[in-house]
């Protein structure tokens, strides 16, 4: 029986039995949605839900035990006008970002350049250099770091060989942040791998043409390698900056969750954590989180806007 005869000549009973558009769509797509279900539950229940809730909570006073009280923009006003710790944590985080990201990228690029020279055992070195990135953000490494930079730690043991009595780097506000910056730079593996992949993409004959043009290694690096690597630099810079703004574990472990000495390691996320889970000021902590998001968003938008002036895409 053709479709035509079905539609025109079939009794009403048969037509009623034929599936409606919606049920046909459901029949066609149900297995797909079923497979998607775990992700959908996670996305709406664990991501979108908390995001929307935290935005609402940022306008409330909420201690987890009683229901939230609407306070309007008070949390934001207080943050910018009456909270020196907010500014202290912002200062620490910005210093951390400004120093750790360029240093890490420079170090990663330097090692990638070394590894790109076609040395033997490259896969082994690549894995070894990548290892800190896997371990770096862990609690264990943060504890190890604490031992290395303690008064009787490895660094001071080494300095004592030269007769130098080093301070306790971690408990000295002058140096404590720098130990965390060094820890961040040490985790250069991830951007290094990406730099290495980028370097491999630069055609060898560019360098050959440049060497015939009389360009030495340094000029080749400045005039060929760096410009052709700018898309990778841009990508790494964005990712690493966002990571740096979000950095939490090392500061938490090394300072014992206090951000001390004298708030010198009070990272923004650490302060946020203290407000939320130390003082149960969930409303204020949510406002802090939204300010961080806005800050990272503005930085990323600014980076993309300026990228057309310094990022060179081949095609």
């Amino acid at each position: 029986m053709t479709a035509r005869s079905l539609e025109s000549g079939a009794p009403a009973r048969e037509r009623a039995a034929s599936p409606s558009l919606w049920s046909r769509i459901w029949q066609n797509h149900a297995p797909g949605y079923l497979f998607l279900l775990p992700w959908l539950i996670g996305f709406f229940g664990l991501t979108i839900g908390p995001i929307v809730t935290s935005f609402y909570l940022s306008f409330t006073d909420f201690d987890l035990l009683t229901s939230p009280d609407w306070v309007g923009a008070n949390n934001y006003v207080r943050m910018f006008t009456a909270d020196p710790k907010f500014w202290a944590s912002m200062r620490v985080t910005v210093i951390f970002v400004i120093f750790s990201v360029p240093l890490k990228l420079a170090f990663a690029l330097a090692v990638a350049l070394l590894l790109n020279r076609g040395m033997r055992g490259l896969p082994l070195y690549r894995a070894l250099f990548y290892l800190p990135s896997l371990l770096g953000a862990s609690v264990a490494i943060a504890i190890l770091w604490r031992q290395i930079f303690a008064r009787d730690g490895l660094v001071n043991d080494f300095l004592s060989v030269f007769g130098i009595a080093g301070p306790s780097w971690i408990s000295n506000p002058q140096y404590s942040l720098w130990t965390i910056i060094i820890l961040a730079v040490w985790q250069f593996g991830s951007p290094m791998i990406i730099f290495l992949a980028g370097l491999r993409q630069i055609p060898q004959d560019m360098y050959e043409a440049a060497s015939l043009d009389g360009a030495g290694k340094w000029r080749q690096f400045i005039k060929i390698t760096l410009p052709l690597l700018t898309p990778v630099v841009f990508f790494n810079a964005i990712i690493q900056t966002i990571e740096a703004f979000k950095s939490f574990t090392p500061a938490f472990i090394i300072s014992g969750g206090t951000g001390n000495p004298i708030n010198s390691t009070l990272f923004y996320t650490l302060y946020l954590y203290q407000e939320a889970f130390g003082f149960f000021r969930m409303g204020y902590a949510s406002a802090l989180a939204w300010v961080l998001l806005a800050l990272v968003g503005m930085f990323t938008a600014f980076s993309f806007l300026t990228s057309k002036y310094w990022v060179h895409y081949d095609e």
Binding site: P203, D205, A209, I224, P227, L228, H312
Partner: peptide
């Protein structure tokens, strides 16, 4: 010596 490469080897940036 100057050389013309098969791939042209022009600096894309």
């Amino acid at each position: 010596i100057a050389m013309v490469f098969q791939s042209y080897a022009l600096y894309p940036h």
